[in-house]
Amino acid sequence: MSPPLPYPSRPEVYDWAVELQVPPPHTLAVRRVPVDTLSLSIQMALRQHPNLREAATIEVLEQHLEDEGYCSVLVSIGQNITEDQSPSSLWLGRSTGSCCIVVYPELPIKSEPHSSHMNLEEVAMPISPSPPESYCRADRAATSDCSPPSSIAQPFFKFGDEIRMLAQTLLDMGAAKSEAPTQQQYRKLKIFSGTKPTPTDEEAFEVWREYTSQVLEEWTCSELVKRQRIMECLRPPASTTLQMAKDQHADVTAHQMLETLVWAYGRTEDIGQLMKRYYNLCQKDGEELSDFLQRIQAVLWELRKRKRITAAEVD
């Protein structure tokens, strides 16, 4: 048995539950229990309370001696219990008329989500503080002027302004921190307009398409964000082409948007034509082997993107 714990207080009941590795919100202590009281009597007395009748379990965990003939008992309830909805005393129904006192653990105060943010907003509001009650004279019933002397009020208002400035600074820092994830750097797409001839600050469509396909595979954002990122890199007439496609199909995906641009600005060869071009490939007179391989890889990669062949078949 643990050392004597006379008359456990609310913090002591909390520590007692933690020591026994029981959730404190599920526990209560009963004081001034006669030492010869059966656990069943305590359980039956607790179940007399309306809010504890349907409790899954009521278990007496441990007892500590208070003084001669009495002890404190820690009880575990199979549910969260609150002091305002549970008994404050127990009548054990003994011939001696024992009335025991119930003590609930003192639980830590949990701050509500964003509560500090809300408090800061209240402090940061540019309100005009009212003067302390002690500044109001007994003659305020005869006059509406209840302002403190200027020599006293000036430091009071200045201190309030400094507090509000500090609160506003903390709010700005919190807003900047909360927006940081949304402003995280990502691999942006290059500008493409579809203008002929290709402007000097842009790349040919096939190069832009290849780059965009790779970036789309890297992005882990939602489909909506992918569509937004594609649109932000386009200029007319390419952006107009996609906007018309989006108007006709609101649920278009990022890959479908890219395919729309392929049909508008890319090669229009079908699978049969691509296969024919592949089989007709041959090394030209004086062509370096590396250049010939690049031409082969370009056609194979086009077939791979069209899902005509697999990655293993490319090799």
Rank of each mutant, 00 (worst) to 15 (best):
P3C: 08
D139P: 12
H117R: 06
G194P: 04
D315K: 05
I296D: 14
P6Y: 02
Q243E: 06
T240K: 14
G272Y: 08
E133C: 11
T220E: 15
P87K: 04
K284M: 11
S86H: 08
A312D: 09
P149L: 14
K307I: 06
K158Y: 12
Q185G: 15
T310E: 09
V123M: 03
R235Q: 12
P237S: 05
A29H: 01
R47M: 04
T310A: 02
E302G: 06
D145M: 07
R140M: 13
W91E: 15
D285L: 15
V30Q: 05
S88C: 07
L189P: 01
E83N: 09
V30C: 01
I127F: 00
W16R: 11
A264G: 07
G78E: 01
A45G: 02
K246R: 15
T27D: 03
P50L: 02
E287D: 03
E19N: 11
E302R: 05
S95E: 15
G97Q: 04
T82N: 12
S98I: 15
F157Y: 10
K177E: 13
A138H: 12
Q228W: 15
E232D: 12
D285T: 09
R229G: 00
S222A: 03
V75S: 03
T253L: 06
Q248T: 15
V73E: 01
S111P: 13
L92R: 00
F159S: 13
Q154D: 13
S128T: 13
N119R: 15
S72A: 08
L224K: 06
H114L: 09
W301C: 13
M275E: 10
E112N: 10
C136L: 14
L303H: 03
D161R: 05
Q228D: 15
G174T: 11
M165D: 14
M165T: 11
V60H: 01
A176P: 07
S178W: 15
S111I: 11
V60T: 09
P148C: 05
T310K: 05
A312V: 06
F157C: 00
I230F: 01
S239P: 04
K158D: 11
E202R: 02
Q79V: 02
R137N: 08
I42C: 01
S76A: 13
Q21F: 08
H255E: 13
L224N: 13
E313V: 02
A142N: 09
E68T: 10
S178D: 15
A245T: 04
D15C: 13
E68R: 08
V22C: 06
L300S: 10
E66M: 05
R94S: 11
I101C: 12
Q43Y: 10
Q256S: 03
